[in-house]
Design a protein around this nucleic acid. Sequence first.
DNA 1: ACAATACGTGACCACACAGTCATTTTTTGA
DNA 2: TCAAAAAATGACTGTGTGGTCACGTATTGT
Lengths: 226, 226
Amino acid sequence: MEIAEPLSRRERERQTRRQAMLDAALAVFAENGYEGATIDEIAERAEFGKGTIYNYFPDGKEALFMTLLAELVIGGLHEVIASSFSDLDELATPAGARAAFRRFIVNMIQRHHSEDNVLLMFMKEGHRTVFHEDKTAVLAEQFNGVFDALVVPIEQAIASGALRPIPALPVAHLLMGNIRGYLMAELDARCDPSQTVHKAPYGTPDAAADFITTVLFDGLLAPDAA
Amino acid sequence: MEIAEPLSRRERERQTRRQAMLDAALAVFAENGYEGATIDEIAERAEFGKGTIYNYFPDGKEALFMTLLAELVIGGLHEVIASSFSDLDELATPAGARAAFRRFIVNMIQRHHSEDNVLLMFMKEGHRTVFHEDKTAVLAEQFNGVFDALVVPIEQAIASGALRPIPALPVAHLLMGNIRGYLMAELDARCDPSQTVHKAPYGTPDAAADFITTVLFDGLLAPDAA
DNA sequence: ACAATACGTGACCACACAGTCATTTTTTGA
DNA sequence: TCAAAAAATGACTGTGTGGTCACGTATTGT
């Protein structure tokens, strides 16, 4: 027997199927929201019998949802934060801090552009990561971890004098709120079939990041203002 | 017969009951979200039989929800905007613009503090005002109207040189996203039973508005920065 | 080749809930 | 006072869905 083998063929296949189920579930949750999603549809899209889903996720719908939210949304946020602020020394100067946070914003937007369904799921069901309902308390705790991670570079930049001395956690919320607001506006523009004029000015992640960065870091007031 | 009477007693009582049903529905939607809310519970809280609800809202759950979202959330936003920017001349100077938007932010926060359930409903189900699903397209259109209204003072302030020359609609989204983010953070702090340290610094509407206004208008960068 | 074990499956069940409607209760007007 | 109109009601129905399980089918080890 080969116990040296890290994963048996069996186990590998099991993982593949599990992933297929998660993929299907993500698509269905993104499209219909948590309540609107049905296990039958997830099973059908994943091309499995409904019972098989329960072999892999004994706790059913809830387990699928929690897994997705934890791995993709929360995990994804942690990844973006980690990869955007790898060099903490950069935060010592105003220009460096500005560049680092701009990079974070670009990465956030890019990631959500490349993972549409994650974005949709987050927009439709993200509130479950905040309200401490029965089952989602764990998620809420994990979601706080995201803010904790984001607070680190903010506090660093404040400590070094690059940013104003203001409470870091609310700043983190504002920053996330901004990005969310921008992405929501993009979705709005995309969803609207009429495509009226005022929806136009959403462009590349870079342009969007420039926009958000300018507002957040330099402020809305005209630079030559009294 | 007295057709001169604006509203018969009958009609007035009818309105009162209708309002009681809406109040109950708001509470239930705020607590459980749209899908989680049941007509039975709404009827029970309003102290009416279930059938009576359908006498007043023949289209049932959907009608109750749409009415609430349109009247309270969207109507409320229009009110706050209108009352905050009554004097457009104020927007001609940077200081005036800053003051006007700060007032808007205070009003927004105050309103949501005084109408908890509206806030909760908006946080949990607000995404329905963006995604153009089957039934909620009307709401999405109305919600765009809110941004149209908010764009007016922003464009005014930009035109007069008080604010940077940047696209007004995305700014409106950012502004709303900020306020939403702040309110969400407050709810988060409130919902968390553990009340860990980092949740502390959310205070009065004025303090919060100072915070948001500073970030948005003056920018995050330290004022004495290069 | 064959038993033993693991795995996939969809018919089935229990239940929750939106919406209906026949009946009861209240109000109206004469 | 009382019949007719209006309004309230909650038992009932139909539907949709989450979860179960007895059965069939592959996989494994010998």
